[in-house]
Design a protein around this nucleic acid. Structure first.
Lengths: 140, 140
DNA sequence: GCTTGACTTAGAGTGCGCTCTAACTTTTAA
DNA sequence: TTAAAAGTTAGAGCGCACTCTAAGTCAAGC
């Protein structure tokens, strides 16, 4: 049991589903996982570290295709550090652009929220004035 | 021609495809566009402003379903400003979280890039040392 | 008048990233 | 010992957001 997790445990640890873990292995994002005598997968600590890094790439929007390329480099080109760094740096740029895009569009949404807030206070003031004058009429 | 753009012109102006423009109208993101006598769509300036705002929502990851809700509020509840503001504020929060997520995961990728860079300089130094000693051997 | 290109519709197809199913075997707890 | 839970595979299905097709109508230039 030392260092040998079941697929279920890995799913809990990484937040991926067991389905997704098998899917990632099937499409070569994860290299074939060591099996118990009965054929069940047994994940090592380094398998988990790899899966965790994969999910970082995924969550920053890297497509499966690119992750496959990266995984291929890691597996078949263990000395090809510069290539891997270049891939990550290209991805880094695209994430930075993604963030800038989000911030720019968020600014416009913020502007709209402000606009709505202004409309609301305007409307509230209008109503208050109406009520006041209505009150006066009533009391007179 | 004043204020009356064809679907092609709107596609160019907004960056959406003509297909997507029709699709958005079909699923009620855009209310029915005014037609020329022949049945062709003629977009007004305010149609375009609406489409541009829609794309901001879209580019910040709002799902079509939510945009449909928002569009419905705008069309059928013109005085329901608070509801609209609430929707936008909820979305605003999710965009902010999205950005934080991206930044956190980017930091890990950055760390990996640094790690690779370090490996590369290490390797380069190693090679240089080897070459030097090799040179010495050769020259001696 | 005729061709070329833009427009229309309903509905089918695509690519992505999972997600689930069926049929079966293995492990585990009662 | 046996029932339930968890594992296996190949392959089908799904939801999303488009994207394209077919069959036809309309408009502009020669």
């Amino acid at each position: 049991m030392a260092d040998e997790l079941t697929i279920q445990q890995v799913a809990e640890a990484t937040g991926l589903s067991v389905h997704t873990l098998r899917y990632y292995e099937r499409c070569d994002l994860i290299s074939p996982i060591h099996r118990s005598s009965s054929g069940h997968r047994r994940y090592s600590a380094s398998d988990i570290r790899w899966i965790e890094f994969l999910t970082k790439l995924r969550l920053t929007g890297m497509p499966i295709r690119q992750m496959q390329q990266y995984a291929l480099l890691v597996r078949c080109h263990p000395n090809g550090v510069p290539e891997r760094r270049q891939m990550l740096e290209a991805h880094r740029q695209s994430v930075i652009e993604q963030i800038h895009q989000l911030q720019a569009n968020l600014a416009i949404i913020d502007w709209k929220i402000q606009h709505y807030a202004q409309l609301e206070t305007q409307l509230a003031t209008q109503l208050a004035t109406q009520e006041k004058s209505h009150g006066r009429v009533k009391s007179s």
